[in-house]
Design a protein around this nucleic acid. Structure first.
Lengths: 254, 254
DNA sequence: TGATTGTTTTGATTTAAATCAAGGAAACAA
DNA sequence: TTGTTTCCTTGATTTAAATCAAAACAATCA
């Protein structure tokens, strides 16, 4: 009985059988190397909605990969303004911003029931010095995060409320599609308030913009549920180059 | 004669004698490892003001470290809006955002006469898999870049024009101080237009804000020259936590 | 079940920064 | 030197989004 349950949990954590394989750390690794990666992955109980994964200021020990669900990260300034810095979907890595000074500059909260793979950074670092392809993939992922933040900066600095919300939706849609979810019908896991904060806008502006998009027939919403009717027009509004810089992003190949 | 000039240039590129040692890649390496790093560094002629280091879309081959001078990086969207994404001072690394898809997502231009160290990425990657401390330092630098971009995001999303310009100046001041320049007297290498673009504001707003800071006695300016009279007040305006996340940043230890 | 709390929508008003406009000061070239 | 271009400053006006305000709607809980 005990051995069965161990085996079951082992199967569950196995990178080699994980459907997120190509969106996550194992991309490009051969089977033997994936098995070595599997050995350092720790799996704990899923987080419930609103549970913290870590808190700003905490000591950095591990990188986390989202297995299912979603996570938001946010920083708080000394004046108390909160800024959401990231929304992480399955296959994406959390905590890369904490490496440089060994503590988390942001907090991370589950937006829904979320399970994660924990990768102790010391082990990961050691393993990556033995597996060049893992090393390379880690660099790629970090580089992508930098490039993604830079597109977000452009969004904030140069774009109107309409363009920002459109870009947010198009980006989300692309990433969901890459994960085999519908690209036109999905649930926002963030509240209007969170979306506004993320995009540098107020909740009222987000709400009004959604209403206008709806009256223009671009999409329809019921609270968190979104149905995009005219993805093409939305992409155009977003400036086609949505701020998704993932290699798996459909808009890149289109 | 020939051997002399070769020797001279070898001395000039030597990381082990470089004053930027602790702000750059060699931080934490022992002498032998620094010498190995020195072997892969390529040094070319300095760039003149307004010369391109690389262009958006170009194939990625190397990371560049600024030796002297300064560089700005910027992306251009399909609609033609330009967004400055970075201002790089001596000891800082350019091109980390290009690793993930092997091409530069941004262009890089010299803001003044600027000399650089070129680090071919293939060699750097190979070397870093042999030198764990170099590997770690690379991760730290990339992580710092991510964290820095995230503070910039907060700046753009939540802060007023005053706060943004103050934060920009305080950040620049800290980084200059870490490089043994004056923290209160310096030349902006970016134009008002560039500063505005970087901070998501217009040139007129930057100009007016500088004028007001001046009339309030916070600083004085003559074109690019800036003299900060009340750094403390400026820091307070910036929210104390300036968006400098470098470990060498004085505000961290203060 | 109703009471309480939190979230979203919509409307009226204000405001910070953008835009429009024009003059002045440096930098640069012929 | 003078003309040309680029950059910066300052003023007047407009505007997009914030703020203030209130009601409608969901969700949660006793």
């Amino acid at each position: 009985m005990t051995s069965t349950s161990i085996k079951l949990s082992a199967i569950k954590t196995a990178c080699k059988t994980c459907s997120l394989h190509d969106l996550c750390l194992p991309l490009g690794l051969d089977l033997g190397d994936i098995e070595r990666l599997d050995e350092i992955v720790k799996r704990s109980r899923p987080l419930h909605k609103s549970e913290y994964l870590f808190n700003s200021g905490e000591k950095f020990t591990s990188i986390y990969a989202v297995r299912s669900g979603s996570i938001k990260t946010f920083t708080e300034s000394e004046q108390g303004d909160e800024q959401i810095t990231g929304l992480y979907l399955p296959g994406e890595l959390i905590g890369l911003d904490a490496i440089h000074d060994n503590q988390h500059p942001c907090s991370a909260i589950a937006l829904e029931t979320t399970s994660l793979c924990e990768l102790p950074f010391d082990s990961l670092e050691e393993l990556s010095s033995q597996i060049p392809e893992l090393h390379r993939q880690l660099f790629r992922i970090m580089s992508k995060e930098i490039a993604g933040d830079q597109s977000l900066l452009m969004l904030m600095a140069q774009k109107s409320a309409d363009e920002r919300l459109a870009a947010f939706l198009v980006n989300l849609s692309s990433r969901l599609k890459a994960r085999n979810f519908s690209e036109t019908e999905f649930n926002l896991t963030m509240s209007r308030k969170d979306i506004g904060n993320y995009l540098g806008l107020t909740i009222e502006t987000i709400s009004r913009t959604f209403s206008r998009f709806q009256s223009e027939g671009l999409l329809s919403t019921q609270r968190k549920y979104v149905n995009i009717h005219k993805l093409g027009e939305l992409k155009e509004l977003a400036g086609i180059t949505d701020h998704c810089t993932t290699p798996d992003c459909p808009s890149k190949t289109a």
